[in-house]
């Protein structure tokens, strides 16, 4: 699998500039992390529509909500823990409960926080955001997906949380990608034994796991569940019906995360054996992505093992 030629953060920033050229409602806010989010291009093109509010995330969300009441579509950026956990009540009350249309970009999800360590390593961001009524929770897989998602995010009538890997991701898609928020993408549909439902950096690992399983005579479907909420119920049902076993793959705590979201649907609609590859109720720590993935058991090998276990439980 190849690495993307574009960083997701640069792709989003440039796409925001393009969108802002034709939609004057677009404004960008940051809490002193402009350099980390490559939003300088937006600031240079639209200096009056870029607001670095300083290191005050709670205030940033309130300011964004105030701008939304005036008709703006604000995109508010921070590292994922500070864009969600740090200002959760502000997102809950000033944005969601107030029915305001603010887009929240949280970067460096899960083990991607690497050297910033446990304080910056959100394994719970999607869980807490998913608990906010009507909040859309989206995790792009690569630059092409981020680019195609942006106009949909801007057009979506409610608040959206984007859990964004900042750098060059594994390239899964190219410019021909067409997709909808809330509609999962089936990447591999020929397996009959198990479906791997993955998101973010785990999509690449799920595809690799499917190849390894195929070599061992096990057929695995792979579904990219990029939108955790609203979750694609039909895609979960289809997975259960076609393969009779599901493994979820997430760079996030399995409590309240993608595993939880899929299990909620499966238990209600189509109970089948399920395994959840993800962080098992741990805090983060410093380390490289590859090292941390071993420590927290979210590697390709972990997915392979989980798939076999799920199949054995049929």
């Amino acid at each position: 699998m190849t690495t993307d030629e574009r960083e997701i953060r640069q792709t989003l920033a440039q796409a925001l500039v393009s969108l802002a050229e034709r939609d004057e409602r677009i404004v960008v806010l940051d809490a002193d992390l402009m350099s980390c989010h490559a939003t300088k291009c937006f600031k240079e093109r639209f200096p009056e529509r870029f607001f670095n509010v300083g290191i005050a995330e709670q205030n940033m969300i309130g300011v964004a909500a105030g701008m939304a009441t005036m008709g703006k579509i604000p995109f508010a950026y921070s590292f994922a823990p500070f864009a969600t956990r740090r200002c959760y009540d502000q997102i809950f009350i000033s944005v969601a409960y107030s029915g305001l249309n603010v887009k929240i970009i949280g970067s460096e999800p899960g083990v991607a926080a690497e050297a910033n360590g446990g304080t910056h390593m959100p394994f719970e961001d999607m869980a807490i955001m998913r608990a906010i009524p009507k909040m859309v929770c989206f995790e792009p897989t690569d630059a092409a997906m981020m680019e195609k998602a942006l106009p949909q995010i801007a057009d979506y009538p409610t608040a959206v949380y984007v859990r964004m890997f900042r750098k060059k991701a594994a390239k899964i898609y190219d410019e021909s990608l067409e997709f909808e928020l809330g509609k999962a993408i089936t990447l591999k549909d020929d397996g009959k034994d198990v479906t791997l439902i993955a998101s973010g950096i785990m999509v690449e690992r799920a595809l690799q796991a499917a190849d390894i399983l195929a070599e061992q005579g096990i057929g695995a479907r792979v579904v990219n569940m990029h939108t955790w909420k609203p979750i694609d119920v039909e895609a979960v049902k289809e997975s259960a019906e076609k393969t009779g076993a599901i493994v979820t793959c997430e760079n996030h705590n399995i409590y309240g995360g993608l595993g939880g979201a899929v299990a909620e649907v499966a238990a209600r609609e189509c109970p089948v054996p399920m395994e959840t590859v993800g962080i098992n109720d741990e805090f983060g720590q410093v380390g490289k992505n590859a090292y941390l993935s071993e420590v927290y058991h979210i590697t390709t090998a972990d997915i392979v093992n989980a798939a076999k276990k799920a199949i054995s439980r049929k």
């Binding site: 205030n59 300011v63 105030g66 701008m67």
Partner: peptide, 27 residues
């Protein structure tokens, strides 16, 4: 009612955002 309130401290940030947006739009 121009803004929801109830969790204290939040309305002032919203007011600041409104004031900034008003300036941007020459409202």
């Amino acid at each position: 009612i121009d803004m929801t309130a109830g969790s204290l401290g939040q309305g002032l940030s919203v007011a600041v955002g409104m004031a900034m947006a008003a300036k941007l739009d020459k409202n």
